[in-house]
Design a protein around this nucleic acid. Sequence first.
DNA 1: ATGCCAGAACTGGTCTGACCACTTGACCAG
DNA 2: CTGGTCAAGTGGTCAGACCAGTTCTGGCAT
Lengths: 238, 238
Amino acid sequence: MELNPVARRSVRDDVFEQLVRNIVSGEAGDSLLSERQLAEALGVSRPVVREALQRLAHAGLIEVRQGGATTVRDFRRDAGLGVLAHLLVHDGQLDPSVARSVIEARLAVGPQIAGLAAGRAEPEHIGALDAMAGELAAEPDPVAAQRLALEFWDELVTAAGSIVFRLMFNNLRAAYEPLLEVLASVPGNETGRDYRSVVEAVRSGDSGSAIAAAHELLLPTTNALLDVLGRWENQQPD
Amino acid sequence: MELNPVARRSVRDDVFEQLVRNIVSGEAGDSLLSERQLAEALGVSRPVVREALQRLAHAGLIEVRQGGATTVRDFRRDAGLGVLAHLLVHDGQLDPSVARSVIEARLAVGPQIAGLAAGRAEPEHIGALDAMAGELAAEPDPVAAQRLALEFWDELVTAAGSIVFRLMFNNLRAAYEPLLEVLASVPGNETGRDYRSVVEAVRSGDSGSAIAAAHELLLPTTNALLDVLGRWENQQPD
DNA sequence: ATGCCAGAACTGGTCTGACCACTTGACCAG
DNA sequence: CTGGTCAAGTGGTCAGACCAGTTCTGGCAT
């Protein structure tokens, strides 16, 4: 008997989700219904609608002007990484082009993080990384291994000591995490050995070899993921 | 006669800004005043406070639980790139450690973007990039040159065709742009020639040489900026 | 004295209805 | 065609109320 935390979907979160769906599938420049109309259509009060609209505006998805209509913005030009999670699983199913981009970015950014970490990781970070690499090598369950891998990267970002990469990672992780179980089923996944080579490179302090090690770690899984994605895309042309 | 759009600071934006300031300088786990207390203290109504709190919660800066107190979260662990702008200019003055991180990230990420662009830039993008590089070489005003450089990178990100890097760039740009005039005064700034070498590398389609060209373009200004930052940090120990 | 539990007193969540500030568009006078 | 006026619609803000969940506290039973 498995128990999960009760999904306490508050009214405003529900409204927010619905509006996001409608907006990312809409055209830039479209006008939304007025707050009062939305409130009536959704069966909620205006303050609730307003709070949701505030969040959307803050995220760069809509533009709201007093007196005028609220319009949809071009999220490619105006939104930030925060919307990535919403773009990735659009309407309950994965958007392959966004997924491809995420995988690409992982391959491009991951090694840079390793390179920074090599320059300034403290002994305590290296110890933690070492332990995690060991656990990863021993973990038989693919889902648990994926989770551990995320923790490993988390620690590596911390060791890199860059607030920008830290925040970037948080966004990517938020988008990545819901898909964790799906990703665990993709063949050609990480092996424990490779993680240790990254740790070694970081420990050595040589930024170049850390970049190379991380790249070598990520490349095979990147190819595997892109491969699966390509097949899934052909098999199920949207 | 120069006319600028009237800065219409709405009440809720003001409240939001004030709360952000108080939160990023607070300790994780601290409790905020209750909504009613905040409303009274700020002299506004509760809905206004709530809308601001919603945005803060959405950004990952606070955690709000019904019935319990609203608490400050650890933005390093929980926030996304969207808060970068707020961290960078904290209390109206620049945070050097955050600035350092931004400059570092620029050096790390910029070349990756160029590398992706080399793989898939359309002729129209290359044309636009070429024109921009030409303008950059001819622009005498440093502020205008900075602005053009941003446009150049914007176009390059578009050419790279990666939604993740696109959104990432939007966040970085939002943080970067307010400082544009300050940055223009830093000696050792970009020259037009280097931009053209990036365009050439992208045109050639060779990802490796595009990465190298972009790195070569960014490295001197990165060092100049870090140098200025270091001196400014020593001169004015916070 | 101790442990527990009901309830008071918070907290945020939602609703209602009102009024203000602003934009838009239509209409009208010049 | 210009400019002004006005009405209708939009978002912005407010007040007060009540619901829902949490936290603390005081008094009860043990």
